[in-house]
Design a protein around this nucleic acid. Structure first.
Lengths: 223, 223
DNA sequence: AGGCTATGTTGCTGATGTCAACATTAGTGC
DNA sequence: GCACTAATGTTGACATCAGCAACATAGCCT
């Protein structure tokens, strides 16, 4: 198994992805360079081109793998919960934010525009899978009678947005310091946001006027 | 006033920022390059260094200006609302997402890690100002009795996260196609998310168990 | 054995961020 | 008016990067 420093590497593709992940994790996305990655894998600066057509393709593949890692972690979080539908749902949300905090560079890659350039279809699919997990668990909550909503899809989207947003706010350094967190952990903040979503902000009796015409009041001839 | 093609530019600093903004807006952040920016401003490739110590500093300044633009737009959105506290609040949220959609590249710069590298204090301040607007308007809702929450700060954070998240999901192409949107506009989606937050998902009677001990159950000697 | 193809390598080009040295201009005190 | 100085731009250079082309090696198939 001693990878005899042969001309052929064995599994350079895998090695490159690993090296790239390591570089990105340890030194940020900026440090990711095809050449640096090749160096880390112990091959010449052009070897990566035998496995990835371009830098963004490699990044894209990495992003796809990241989504896989995320889902694995979410599944573990679900298992670690107390098993009630609502706690499972919250575990997904909190797990999402925790993943972002634990692997900020990877998380950023997963949603970077460069990674999306050449792997947008695959990434779309990956995001869809994750969203599916979320929506399913939310539907279970509705079935179990603990939550209610008009559209599980919309509700799941709202939840996703909330966790996606808090994740980025965290890793962008928007707030790992005191002002808003009050000493609470990421996990606690994420959970607080989710609970706010679940309980809502409405004072008894509050209603919202029918979607007002804020854009263009020139709806005359139309229809 | 005819800017006589003099050796000195007059206000190169401003011109560089404008050129950079234009490049980024029109051709994406990737296209932003000190040299390209200098070219667009009609100066040599090293002139920018007389005004910005590095590429990331320029980007950072641009990000700061972006936050200013965002707040201006939010103020306009508030004015354009029907004036009730709740509609003002919703206008802020929806306006945030709309800004992100209208200026995706700028929005990305505003939260990019590179811009944060050298201007993190200034950016922190900018984000704080925006958050302040949100929290104040939310407090007005509470005062007016249309919303209720334990902590306006937490509630505002939840709202910010939701809108920040939906904004990034939109501009990252996570969903400008049909599946989730169902043909609705950005504005409608953003509003739906906000309304979900306001109304909550709770079925009457749902409670959440006291924050479970998911992290470390080793809380013995402590107090 | 002979040849084909996948995989790696060396060398190149055009572009970039940044440094150093030089050039020009705008104010300043006289 | 006029020299001096700091501010502002310019030219030239270096190391690095992504990507292209041409070449080298090794595994595999017949």
């Amino acid at each position: 198994m001693a990878k005899s420093q042969a001309y052929h590497h064995g599994d350079l593709r895998r090695a490159l992805l690993d090296a790239a992940l390591k570089l990105i994790t340890e030194q940020g996305v900026d440090k990711f360079t095809l050449r640096e990655t090749a160096r880390a894998a112990g091959v010449s600066h052009n070897a990566p081109y035998r496995h990835f057509p371009s830098r963004s393709h490699l990044l894209g593949e990495l992003a796809v793998e990241g989504h896989g890692m995320l889902r694995e972690q979410l599944l573990k979080a679900i298992e670690a919960s107390d098993g009630t539908p609502l706690e499972k749902l919250l575990a997904i949300g909190v797990g999402y934010a925790e993943f972002a905090m634990q692997r900020p560079a990877m998380f950023r890659v997963m949603f970077s525009s460069e990674a999306a350039r050449d792997e947008s279809a695959a990434l779309q699919m990956e995001r869809g899978k994750t969203f599916g997990m979320l929506e399913l668990e939310l539907a279970h909550c509705v079935t179990a009678g603990v939550l209610s909503c008009e559209s599980t899809s919309d509700a799941a989207l709202a939840g996703w947005a909330a966790m996606h947003g808090i994740s980025f706010l965290f890793i962008d350094g928007g707030m790992q310091d005191r002002p808003l967190t009050g000493g609470r952990s990421t996990k606690q903040i994420a959970r607080m946001v989710l609970e706010t979503l679940v309980f809502g902000l409405r004072q008894n009796g509050t209603t919202i006027s029918a979607q007002p015409e804020t854009t263009k009041p020139l709806r005359k001839a139309k229809k």
